[in-house]
Design a protein around this nucleic acid. Sequence first.
DNA 1: GCGAGTCACAACCGTCGGTTGTCGCGTAGG
DNA 2: CCTACGCGACAACCGACGGTTGTGACTCGC
Lengths: 314, 314
Amino acid sequence: MDLDAVRTFVAVAAAGQFQDAAAALSITQQAVSKRIAALERDLEVRLFHRTARGARLTVDGQAFLPHARELLRVAARADASVRPGRRALRVDVHSRRTAAGVLLQEFHRTHPRIELDVVTLLDADVHAATAAVEAGTIDATFHAVPLPERRLPAGIRAARVIDERHEILVGPRHPLAERRAVTPAQLAEHRIWMPGMAAGTEWADYYDELADAFGLTIDLVGPVFGNEALLAEIAESAELATLVGERSRYLWPDSYDLRRIPVRDPAPVYPMSLIWRADNRHPGLGALRTHLKAAREVTPAAKVWLPRWTHRSA
Amino acid sequence: MDLDAVRTFVAVAAAGQFQDAAAALSITQQAVSKRIAALERDLEVRLFHRTARGARLTVDGQAFLPHARELLRVAARADASVRPGRRALRVDVHSRRTAAGVLLQEFHRTHPRIELDVVTLLDADVHAATAAVEAGTIDATFHAVPLPERRLPAGIRAARVIDERHEILVGPRHPLAERRAVTPAQLAEHRIWMPGMAAGTEWADYYDELADAFGLTIDLVGPVFGNEALLAEIAESAELATLVGERSRYLWPDSYDLRRIPVRDPAPVYPMSLIWRADNRHPGLGALRTHLKAAREVTPAAKVWLPRWTHRSA
DNA sequence: GCGAGTCACAACCGTCGGTTGTCGCGTAGG
DNA sequence: CCTACGCGACAACCGACGGTTGTGACTCGC
């Protein structure tokens, strides 16, 4: 199936005759005739009734038309997603399942008109992601911004948009399973398991500092067999717990009886900023910033714990 | 943008290298190279990093990939919608806004996996539609089936699936505007306007018989300026009313203050059947029949009025 | 019956997309 | 360090496809 043929089909359906469609497409009537004939041969079905007054859709043509329109729309979106100059808003998130991803999905739902592409830079820390923003390959990224010892490059802006609190995830046999909330101090006696956190990453640094601050045992090592395996292990265990972002979404089969219990007093918070180029005029970027600003839930300062190394600015 | 190129792009992204993708597509590596190069030239963007070990997606490629997949999915659906042999379930309804259309939409929502095409045969009465079912151009149609004086053709089946009751649509100044319900007899004093009902159609016959039975004045003539104009007229008028199916959906701007008032005791019912070929093995057809059976709301026989000419069978 | 309109068919031709053959280059291994 | 292997790119060739112009068959309306 050829997209040009589909475009021609839609043009003919709209015009009601080959000639006008040909004019609209700036080709000859004969070319239109050939394209339609080729499409009909390809689909093995007749799309138009030819009359002396023009062309009318057959039942098959009628059935095909909305699909053809959809096809062209999707093709236009696909094109817009990468076309330099007016491509879709491209935002980098570390994972779609954590707060930033969830917020982006929400943004997409409330702003269906804004073309949005969510990508994940491979092995990118704040600096690599910021470099990508600077280079223009992405329009924005979500990261915790380190204290301004190392200032952001000129022309780069950042704004705190997510204060992600945490919950522990435990199985039914875990001692804390029935709590409505736990404090960080209460977690000291229990083992917390976060496999797959490579040392040296921002997240590993965060959990290290958190462990230090409250005397926790946070296990960052261990083989990674995927989320499914981790969840199964947690559900079975009477000792293991893992930390998840409050707004993260991990789907698990109903057979796993897992509970999410908020960590409060103080609530450890992973502060994420949106990072973008000051001179980026993409209309979707402004909308995204406005949306994130509105969606931000600020917890009173007294009740949160923040890592020392992060950028404090709003 | 060429669909073959897009298919190739997806294959390369999956394989991680040109050679394997070429093998999977049964073409040479050189052809793959050309197709990708053409796509990149077309989109004015680099999609892959070429290395000595294969090809890795660039950020642009990563952004493009889901759109490319979607494009292929939509193309496959478009193809399936008309491909003889295994095309989508094709159902004819007179209007998408009336009960049959609304039920089909509901069916589509609850059965997203079943490819469904809703078409409207032009100028087709029961017999023309039945002929289309017989010929196989459509899988099913909704119509009131006349009494078996003229029996259905051999191999054609019909089942009553919709008993559509009615409501009158009136503006705020109409004498009946504040009623919670009206009887057909009460309508006798008022003028009912149904423009655009060509004489001789099933619907016109129905309204004729209804008018006779209760001494109503139903005006089937009048110029047709579209639904919008009709609704505007009704909303303004203190005398005009029009009949609509209970489950029909007409959207109007909020500025029109229109009320829908059920007609009951007895409730005139337009009985519609689904008509299909007994030997049609399309899997969606069975699902549709089951769905319609479950959705059917049967009003006690004593409380309904049915036209004499319709097929009484369940 | 004829003219004006429709679409289809035929002939022609350039371009595009496929193939085969070869090269440059980066990585891995001796 | 140098070589051998594997990857993708480039070049030359060729057939097929899609565009054009010219023409024919057909229908409708005056």
